[in-house]
């Protein structure tokens, strides 16, 4: 019953992760090693690909692990498993939120929570930036990275440029200039 096991395992991973896909990767690693589904090296490769391909990292990793373990059915069930807890938890919470969001106490609570989002996302920017720059080998790569990050930041933060076009333009710039 490998399919059922994949579904249950990834459901559990989705259910017990709060705060996004990167936190999920540690849990996924633990589970696939415990079940002996993949080797650690295979897992490292999968994480690399999950980061390089579009979409939520958790979904990419779940689809890949499921496919490697049990083919197409495994891919679909692992993905469904990792996504389903979102459906349940968000529907429950958003129902309560829509009902009470006009209450004074809830508004005060969110006045305390909203700045946290800014702080957490700012921290993510610093951590992703540090990791990216640490991996760069040459001065020209560092300069190019600064320019692309700067242009994207300017366009999204101060102009209403389309993020999708900025990502595509950066991919093209990388293709032509990162050598």
């Amino acid at each position: 019953m490998i399919l059922l096991k994949l579904f249950v395992t990834f459901f559990k991973i989705g259910l017990f992760t709060i705060g996004g896909g990167y936190a999920m990767l540690a849990l996924i690693r633990q589970e696939i090693v415990r079940h002996g589904w993949l080797t650690v090296q295979e897992f490292v490769d999968i994480v690399g690909i999950a980061e390089m391909t579009p979409g939520p990292i958790a979904v990419n990793a779940a689809t890949f692990v499921g496919y490697r373990t049990a083919g197409l059915g495994g891919a679909l069930l692992a993905t469904a498993g990792v996504a389903l807890p979102s459906l349940i938890s968000v529907i429950a919470v958003s129902y309560v939120w829509e009902k009470y969001k006009t209450s004074k106490t809830v508004q005060n609570m969110f006045a305390g929570i909203r700045p946290i989002v800014a702080g957490l996302v700012g921290a993510a920017a610093v951590m992703v930036g540090t990791a990216t720059f640490e991996a760069l080998a040459s001065v020209s790569h560092i300069l190019l990275t600064i320019v692309l990050a700067g242009v994207t930041f300017y366009g999204v933060a101060f102009r209403k440029w389309d993020p999708i076009k900025l990502i595509l333009a950066s991919a093209l710039a990388g293709l032509l200039l990162f050598r």
């Binding site: 996302v121 920017a125 990216t132 242009v151 366009g155 990502i167 950066s170 991919a171 990162f178």
Partner: peptide, 18 residues
């Protein structure tokens, strides 16, 4: 190469989101 460009852009995106 293309991914190196995307990665740079992602730093800017997250900083802008913040």
């Amino acid at each position: 190469r293309a991914f190196s460009g995307v990665k740079a852009s992602v730093i800017g995106l997250i900083a802008a989101a913040a």
